[in-house]
Amino acid sequence: MKPIRKTFGNELPFSLLLHYKETKSPQHELPDHLHHWYEFVYVYRGKGTFFIDQTFYEMCQGDIIVIPGNTVHRGFPDKEEPVTSSAVFFSPYLVNNNTFSEAYTYLRLFDTAKKNKQYKYTLPPEHAQIIESDILAIHEEWEQRRPDGGHAMALLLHLALLHLNRYCLPQAAEPGATSTLVPDWFREALAYINDHLDGQLELHALAKRAAVSSAHFSRVFKQRLGMNAGEYISTKRIFAAKDRLLQSNDKIEQIAMSCGFESMPHFYRTFKKYTDMTPAAYRKSNRPS
C-alpha cells in the first residue's frame, strides 16, 4: 500500500492550510499522515486517540497536539463521541523569516516536543479560549478572501505560535504519562525501531524480541497504525534521511547507510516513492538559500 499523504498546492496563500472545526470519523480520517509541513491540532470536544512518532495519546477537550514535520501520525476518533478539532498546517519557512530586530523562535514548542517526545499539552479554559480565538481569526481571514488576507493569516499564525509557546512550554518539563492504550510489547517495539533504524529490523526478529508470533505482530501493527511494520519502518527511515539531508552536509551515500538502507538503488527507489523526488533534489529545494 502506498501511504496516503497530505498534499499542499502552491495556490495556498503563504503555505498555510486550516481544517476548521471538523468532526472526525473513522471513515473520514486518513490512515496515516505523512508530510513535511508542521501541524497543530486543537480539540474542542469529543474523544479519541492520537498516535504520533511512537506514542499514543488520549484526546479530550482543550488538548493541543503538536506535530513537527516529517513525523508519522494518525488520529483515531471515538465511535460514540467523535473528536471535533481544528488542524493548522503550515510550512516552517513561513515562520522562519523573522522581520523583527529581536529574534524569536516561533517553532520552539515543536523543537522541544520532538526532543522530549512529548507531543500533547492540555490547556486550562482561559488559555484554551485564547487559542480558539487565534484559530477563529485565521479562519475568518480565509473566508473573507481579502487581497491582503494571506499576510494577515501569516501574522495571525505567528501570534498563535507565540501563544502556544507561552502556554504549552511550561508543561514540557513535566514528565509524560506512560501510555496504557497499547500493550507493553507493542510500545517497546516502537521504541526499539525508533532507536535502531540504522540496523536490521526484520519482522521475525522483532516479533521474537516481543515474544509474540510474526502473524500477531503484523496484525496488531496494522490494527493500531493502519500500516504494516515494513511500511512504518521505511517511513521512519525516510523521515530520518530527510532530516539528515537538510541538517547536515553528509554525502547522500553516508546518509542512506546510516538510516538503514543496504543499497543505494533501494534508497533512491524508496525515497522517490515517498517524496516524488530524488534525495539531491529534495536537499536542494528545501534548504534555505
Rank of each mutant, 00 (worst) to 15 (best):
F90W: 08
T180H: 14
S214R: 14
Y42A: 07
S289K: 09
D78N: 11
M59G: 01
E262V: 08
P31S: 06
E80T: 14
E140T: 13
L181A: 11
L197Y: 03
C60Y: 12
L30Q: 13
Q54H: 10
N286V: 06
F40L: 09
I52Q: 04
P183I: 08
T84K: 12
Y232Q: 04
V182L: 14
I65E: 03
C168K: 01
E143A: 07
H35T: 03
F261K: 01
R146A: 15
L201Y: 05
F90S: 01
S101H: 10
G48L: 14
S289I: 13
I64G: 00
P288S: 02
L161K: 10
Q247W: 02
G75E: 08
T99V: 02
N286Y: 14
G46I: 14
T55H: 15
M59V: 08
P124V: 15
L161P: 02
Y282N: 12
Q54V: 05
N10K: 11
L181F: 11
N165R: 05
E188T: 07
M227R: 12
L206G: 05
A113K: 03
I135S: 07
V95S: 03
R283I: 09
L107W: 03
K79T: 12
H204T: 10
P175L: 05
R145N: 11
G230H: 12
V41F: 00
R74P: 00
L162E: 14
R108N: 04
V72Q: 10
P147V: 15
V83R: 04
T278K: 07
T278D: 07
H266A: 15
Y57S: 07
S179A: 04
F267G: 00
P125A: 11
I238G: 10
W37K: 04
Y282T: 09
L94I: 04
R45P: 00
V182E: 10
F56Q: 12
S258C: 01
F76H: 14
N96S: 06
Y268E: 09
G69C: 05
F89A: 02
D134V: 07
A205W: 02
F221N: 02
A103D: 11
R283Q: 15
A87K: 03
N116V: 07
H196D: 06
V182T: 15
V220C: 07
S179Q: 04
S218E: 09
F110A: 12
H196I: 05
I67T: 12
G9K: 12
H158T: 06
H28R: 12
H19K: 08
R145A: 13
A103L: 10
S285G: 00
